[in-house]
């Protein structure tokens, strides 16, 4: 696959297959194109050349909304919607026409106590916010998680906590990181990207 952004080629001739059930780290310095690659996986963007397949199917043939609920992206920084944490968790399932998610269970899987449910989602620390982003993704009962530098804005303690939680979730993941040690701690497979190419 190849992709351009802002008239600049950010991905060039990427050919990659990710195994189901595995945690894969996309490792590279900032600006290497790893986040751009991640955004192709749930069709927040499309490649200019080439095809992204999910379970063998061209993602352009899938409903993009449904795809994004199956492979849920956790953003680099907390991006809470207005309202409580519980409302944030219910947002995705409600749009999908599903029942209200098990908020407490999603919070627990993300390492948050049930007292967070009624907190104002915009008044949390970055570390707490990132866990809410994780819980919000889990509330969609995804088949896989796409993580975009989930700990880049955190101090070491908070980072260790999130890493532990990620290790316990037990879902296939694609983890974008610039931190080689983190990739080694979390991922079964490390894919290195440099200047838009597989290194």
């Amino acid at each position: 696959m190849s992709a351009a952004r802002g008239g600049r080629r950010v991905l060039d001739g990427i050919d990659l297959s990710l195994a189901d059930g595995e945690v894969t780290a996309l490792l590279g310095p900032s600006g290497s194109g790893k986040s751009s690659l991640l955004r192709l996986l749930n069709r927040l963007a499309d490649p200019d050349e080439g095809t992204v397949r999910f379970h063998g199917e061209d993602v352009r043939g899938l409903d993009p909304l449904d795809l994004r609920r199956r492979a849920v992206l956790v953003p680099q920084l907390p991006a809470p919607l207005p309202g409580t944490v519980a409302e944030n968790l219910s947002f995705g399932p409600r749009l999908a026409g599903r029942d209200v998610p098990e908020v407490v269970r999603c919070l627990a899987r993300s390492g948050l106590g049930d007292e967070y449910a009624e907190r104002d989602a915009s008044r949390l620390s970055v570390g707490e916010g990132q866990r809410v982003m994780l819980a919000r993704a889990l509330a969609l009962e995804p088949e896989a998680l796409l993580l975009d530098e989930p700990t880049s804005a955190l101090d070491d303690d908070a980072r260790e906590g999130i890493e532990r939680t990620l290790g316990e979730i037990g879902l296939p993941m694609v983890l974008v990181t610039h931190d080689r040690a983190q990739a080694a701690r979390l991922a079964g497979r490390i894919v290195e990207i440099e200047k838009g190419r597989l290194a």
Binding site: L65, R68, V72, L73, L77, A79, L81, F91, G92
Partner: peptide, 16 residues
């Protein structure tokens, strides 16, 4: 833009 994309990533339509 980041919040918009985060919302789209939860399966929201562009209108939503």
């Amino acid at each position: 833009a980041p919040r918009l994309e985060a919302t789209l990533a939860l399966g929201a339509t562009s209108r939503q």
